[in-house]
Nucleic acid binder design. Sequence first.
DNA 1: GTCTATAACTAGATAGAC
DNA 2: GTCTATCTAGTTATAGAC
Lengths: 224, 224
Amino acid sequence: MARKTKAGNGQAGRSSATRERLLDAAERLFAQRGLDAVSVRDITRAAGASLGAITYHFGAMRKLVVAVFDRRMAPLTRQRLEALSAVEKAAGTGPLPLEAVLEAMFRPAVMEAMTGERAGVVFGKLMARSMMDPNPNLEKYIHSQVEPVIRRFDAALLRAVPELTPEDVFWRMHLLVGGLHQSLLMMDRKPPAGLPRLRLDAETYVRRFVAFATAMFRARLPKA
Amino acid sequence: MARKTKAGNGQAGRSSATRERLLDAAERLFAQRGLDAVSVRDITRAAGASLGAITYHFGAMRKLVVAVFDRRMAPLTRQRLEALSAVEKAAGTGPLPLEAVLEAMFRPAVMEAMTGERAGVVFGKLMARSMMDPNPNLEKYIHSQVEPVIRRFDAALLRAVPELTPEDVFWRMHLLVGGLHQSLLMMDRKPPAGLPRLRLDAETYVRRFVAFATAMFRARLPKA
DNA sequence: GTCTATAACTAGATAGAC
DNA sequence: GTCTATCTAGTTATAGAC
């Protein structure tokens, strides 16, 4: 994704053992404590690197934050768009199946959050917390990733449920995205006294979520 | 809510013009920038008070954060529980109407966020951002407010939709809460290029949200 | 009750040794 | 490429004047 052959700061575009350890440590700490509660010192200490390592490899702390997200979001965006393309191709010129479109949107995210190779629900918590983060650098990056996804999925959903308006589709999608993040974050907390922890495997999670999402998209607006 | 007649710090339990200005300024800044991006200096400057004012009135910065939330959440919790009691009373021993239970849950929050006397969507943004905040003091307070609400509404929803399990009800509720916050936060952002801003009045917002929530609660689980 | 001045601490960034 | 030491500027909390 990044080029930055020489320009300015952030000299290291390529891989490096230290660089990877910094990303891993930062991701884990961000998910645990939230972005603002983690310092350069926390990360370098956890990664077994020196204090200057972040500036050397990323140019600045805020660029490391974006790098942490890019490592996960870029593949997620690609998977979502590919899955949607597959659904569109299978449908040909016929009607788009709503449930399949919603599954293309949400399956990659749930899988990444729950079965990702590194850290279990780390990325889920990270995403849940960060979507609402007011950090302008991060917000700009996330927007750049989310925008094409929203654009293409909104169009597909409009095709799948033609009686809805674009604004309505946009709104319902955001409800679902917020619900996904909240539920991913909740999976990691202990439920309130007496209620057993909801322990769903990723596949069941996806299927339930898609079922709920489909029901919500099929709901008629109340009469004005 | 608070007593603290004399003990330790946080001397001022009663009202004070400065104290109220501090709460107002803090709430606005928290909603705009997020909790961690606001300092004691920012708040006191915006409130036209001195640097020591927060320590004097609240004992510490983190206690002011809780006070900001308490001023909004305590009435919200009360309204929700009262609305639910009214629904239960109207139903008598008969079945509870699902839609009315969900409305008791979500109408007070939407109204507070969208028509609150002070600041428009300020509280909505604040809640959306803070529900996921890892700050332990705040999390503990929010939990103390949310716990009785979740407990009573889960019981009511189980009565309204007896075929669901408690875990399932709990999960669907959290999906909806997350969706509410995401959509409240989104109302304040400009939509992505070309799409007109969704400008709903509070009443329409409530009715649409409740319609979606009802549809989601009536959705059957996919076959295992 | 409210202010100013300051203490004690931590933040991110950088210079320079190796 | 990685380290240590240091710089500047920010933080909260507190002491004491008024």
